[in-house]
Design a protein around this nucleic acid. Structure first.
Length: 510
RNA sequence: GGUCCAUUCGUCUAUCGGUUAGGACGCAAGAUUUUCAUUCUUGAAAGAGGAGUUCGACUCUCCUAUGGACUACCA
């Protein structure tokens, strides 16, 4: 029998959630939903120094925007509450002591300065200082000091930490759902700090294992940066006697800079003009960072793009709804190597979603932008204009430049277009076109096109010359949709007005 | 430096011993077009290198190279 799938996303509230973090959350979510399990959000705020106000709220809002639903955890509660580690601080000391009693850990009284000096000393000698079996009995630890001395130091309030007693020369054999079998010799590892008396808080390693156990986590899906600490985590489960319920592990490949060479960072985004965060962020010190949401990305496109960065279904499908991602997701189709993030591809995904939006959806998204430009119009017209031009847009924010002439008459004219068409016979022809348009009662796209088309043919005029001159009058530039889309949209009266305005205000070229 | 992980077109990737190594982004050319786009068609573009194993390796093993992560009383 396989146990209930329970996965957790456990970010640290030290700043805005990075898109790599969003992907980790997404894969956890997809895995949970795929297997009918639970998705848990745990906040790992055991570093009191690096806590950033607002980060937790940011994380929750980001997940919500992406459509990643939390079944249990911070913000929603659940049977294992609280889910914020700072609110669970009483429980960890007990487990640290349990490890000491079982001989798996010990007290260490070194000060930060002493350790620093030790590291510098080793460095000067061309070596690397490691806190492990070679030194733990020579330093001020409960392994070298007498029981009385240890108790006395603790009683008098000396600062101490609990360190894991990493075995010497033992091979730890581990299994990773993505990477397969991994072996590490414990002699290359060091005695990690598990608990610190200074703030009465555990470090990541202890808190993580204890909470995963208590919360009955079945699968730990996290970033590759955690792979080096997997041996410690295996040993911790063994030390606690929890190996029978130990979760399975899957370490995800990293998200790399577009240029290669390292993890994606905020700096890359600033430099190359793309966001690395899901939402706009303002730090307590006033620093800001771009977000996909505010930069005009659709959450579905963002999620779709992220899902495919490191996972693929083995088919040629590129566009997925969340449900399709859930149905197709599996950890053994996650790739092993890091994936470079490509801003162009993100843009392409967004364009695909843009093209699939209905006029109604576009209207609600476009209206705020229209208002910003002082345009008051109906949802119907906003949606219609956006619908006509959506194929050429990648972002909602592209729409204004693409559709402004539907709402506002041109008052200046594109130089290139004017030079090319506002000369020769064209101004005179435009007057003729004006009369033809003035004579049309049914100004629908189809009728106008039929009447004007027939007239051009009858006169034997050049289609390009006529249409582009008309385009100059109505649009003001050499761009836009089919001419009759514009005439039908703005209507007869406005058409004539714009033609007259051009006739009166722009001297023919030459 | 040490430990671990990785390595198919520029990028994301398919291939789970036998393929003309497929798709997508981007790029180029062409077609369509009243403009700008869209769209469509086509094209260029890849198994890091070296040893093995095998009738046969992109696929398995080893070595080398390269890239990355980790190496805190941070997560």
């Amino acid at each position: 029998m396989s146990r209930e799938v329970r996965v957790r996303f456990a970010p640290s509230p030290t700043g805005p959630l990075h898109m790599g973090g969003v992907r980790t959350a997404l894969y956890n979510y997809l895995f949970a939903r795929r297997h009918g399990g639970k998705m848990i959000l745990r906040i790992e705020d055991t570093d009191s120094q690096r806590f950033v106000p607002g980060a937790e709220e940011y994380i929750i809002e980001s997940l919500k925007w992406c459509g990643i639903e939390i079944d249990e955890g911070v913000g929603v509660g659940g049977p294992h509450a609280p889910y914020r580690q700072s609110e669970r601080k009483e429980i960890y000391l007990k487990y640290a002591k349990q490890l000491i009693d079982a001989g798996w850990a010990y007290y260490a009284f070194d000060s930060a300065e002493e350790l620093d000096a030790l590291r510098k000393e080793a460095e000067a000698a061309g070596q690397t200082f490691a806190y492990n079996y070679t030194v733990r009995e020579k330093l001020a630890t409960s392994l070298s000091l007498s029981k009385e001395e240890v108790e006395a130091r603790i009683a008098r309030g000396d600062q101490w930490v609990v360190r894991f007693k990493m075995p010497e020369n033992e091979v730890v054999e581990m299994d990773d759902l993505i990477r397969g079998h991994v072996k590490v010799n414990t002699s290359t590892l060091d005695d990690k700090v598990l608990y610190k008396s200074a703030d009465a808080l555990p470090t990541y390693h202890l808190a993580n294992i204890v909470d995963d156990h208590l919360m009955e986590i079945s699968h730990v899906i996290r970033g590759e940066e955690w792979l080096p600490s997997l041996p410690l985590h295996y040993l911790l489960y063994r030390a606690f006697g929890w190996t029978d319920t130990q979760p399975e592990f899957a370490h995800l490949p990293l998200l790399l800079k577009p240029t290669g060479g390292g993890k994606l960072s905020k700096r890359d985004g600033d430099k190359m003009g793309f966001p690395v965060f899901p939402l706009f962020w303002t730090s307590p010190t006033g620093e800001t960072a771009h977000g996909y949401r505010e930069d005009g990305y659709f959450a579905e496109a963002f999620v779709n793009m992220l899902a495919l960065l490191g996972w693929n279904p083995g088919t040629e499908q590129e566009l997925f709804t969340m449900q399709e991602l859930i149905d197709g997701f599996s950890l053994d189709r996650v790739s092993k190597s890091g994936a470079r993030f490509q801003p162009d591809k993100a843009k392409w995904f967004n364009a695909q979603y843009m093209h699939r939006k209905t006029d109604e959806e576009l209207a609600t998204l476009f209206q705020p932008i229209l208002k910003e430009h002082g345009v008051e119009t109906t949802d119907y017209l906003a949606g219609k204009a956006a619908g006509i031009m959506k194929e050429r847009a990648s972002f909602i924010t592209d729409l204004w430049d693409l559709t402004s002439y539907f709402f506002v008459a041109p008052t200046s004219y594109d130089e290139k277009q004017a030079k090319k068409y506002w000369k020769g016979e064209n101004p005179a022809r435009l007057k003729e076109v004006r009369e033809v348009l003035a004579s049309i009662d049914d100004f629908s796209l189809e009728n106008t096109e039929a009447v004007v088309g027939a007239w051009i043919q009858e006169k034997g005029y050049g289609m390009g010359q006529i249409m582009n001159t008309l385009r100059l009058a109505l649009v003001g530039a050499g761009k836009g949709p089919g001419m009759y889309d514009v005439t039908a949209f703005i209507g007869k009266e406005e058409c004539l007005k714009r033609i007259d305005f051009l006739l009166e205000n722009l001297k023919p070229m030459e």
